[in-house]
Write a protein that binds this DNA or RNA. Sequence first.
DNA 1: AGGCTATTTATACACTTGCACAACAAGCTC
DNA 2: GAGCTTGTTGTGCAAGTGTATAAATAGCCT
Lengths: 224, 224
Amino acid sequence: MPDATDPAPMNMPSRRRFRREGEERRRQDLIEATLDSVAEHGLQGATLRTIALRAGVTAGLIRHYFPGKEELLQEAYAALMGRMTEQAKAALVMENASPRQRLAAFVTANLNAPIIDARVFSLWATFIGRARADPTLAHAHREGYLGFRNEVEAVVAEVLAAERCKSDASQLRHHAIAINAIIDGLWIEGCLAGEMFSPGELAAIGIKAVEAELGLAPEGEENQ
Amino acid sequence: MPDATDPAPMNMPSRRRFRREGEERRRQDLIEATLDSVAEHGLQGATLRTIALRAGVTAGLIRHYFPGKEELLQEAYAALMGRMTEQAKAALVMENASPRQRLAAFVTANLNAPIIDARVFSLWATFIGRARADPTLAHAHREGYLGFRNEVEAVVAEVLAAERCKSDASQLRHHAIAINAIIDGLWIEGCLAGEMFSPGELAAIGIKAVEAELGLAPEGEENQ
DNA sequence: AGGCTATTTATACACTTGCACAACAAGCTC
DNA sequence: GAGCTTGTTGTGCAAGTGTATAAATAGCCT
């Protein structure tokens, strides 16, 4: 009795069943699968077949949505950067908070999950390592970095204006560069060796370092 | 008239001439060629043939010195890390210098050439991006990082002992972590966007940030 | 000079890669 | 439901990959 519902007929290789997804959804899935593949196996391990497998499609489909592998990788990096800066900036929108509190919250947000994350760091490092050779990546990074630093500079200006008024343009820039470095450096340490720090420790170190850089009184417990 | 010295005989493909180099020399050349290839084309572009071409040999020879490509890459990374930490630590050996001066010199050395270098940064990022998946790389990094931080901690302890005596073990560790972050963060900024900073600017920012972190009097011009 | 050895070259091979293209079917429109 | 559009699959292909191995030769020893 031939089984009509046999899911694996021996000699009549039936085509794989599939569903048509919306274009935006498919692109998003493919980009996510790309980031997952890069995070796990690096750029060399992120092959079209690996990506497609992870996205639940076959490799050929990728060419239907992207001109080639390079464009897919570039869009994936852009998506990653966009998400990172978006999360970072989101910590700055606080109502009813003093500039100093907002700065502290910004530092804290950047030194805890989900921004402190080994996978995201792995992706960042992998892509940034190619920035020197790939102008597109370099430009995308430069854009995100400057945006981030401008945010920092704006908050710092507010803090300095609220506390004192020593706001030289050059000094402001230097403060922003230094604070950016503190956050970046601690971010890396946290991502690479998160288990070496107790919860909240990095944020505490970061806040103290940032406030020291700005010359804010460390013993000031005017809040809480 | 048959030309016996013809460098390119048409139908008698002569074998390529070669020289036998010392084993250590060849290994060194291959590792250097590997680093060059990775810096230029990333891990995916660093093929055995590319590496061999850059080293002036043919691909087969690599297998004579290394069990496989993976081992070559690991040794290359180890060599890179060794050179980096060596250069960094070298800035600490100063005679007739106060702890504060030594710390400043350390910061300055780490924020100028040859440690601020786009190629080295590219290599660092490329390898570190794979550390999460490759335990060998992760271990090599952890080793180098802790060594670096211990150096920082030692100098910081000297500085604090010379200036004041508030040397709590926990505070010392926090200072070392923060200072390490400052140096790392500024190092990244300098490597990725060196032309955005005037010469010595990063070092000046770094020294000020580090001294602020340690609570050293900024107006103290006791030297020079 | 002649021979030996191990460094070096060259070739082969199985496999993977990105890309091209034809066949197919999912789901909308009528 | 029939038909058409197009998202999706499957297959093929040339180029490139790491590795294995045989052949050749450079340079030391005597």
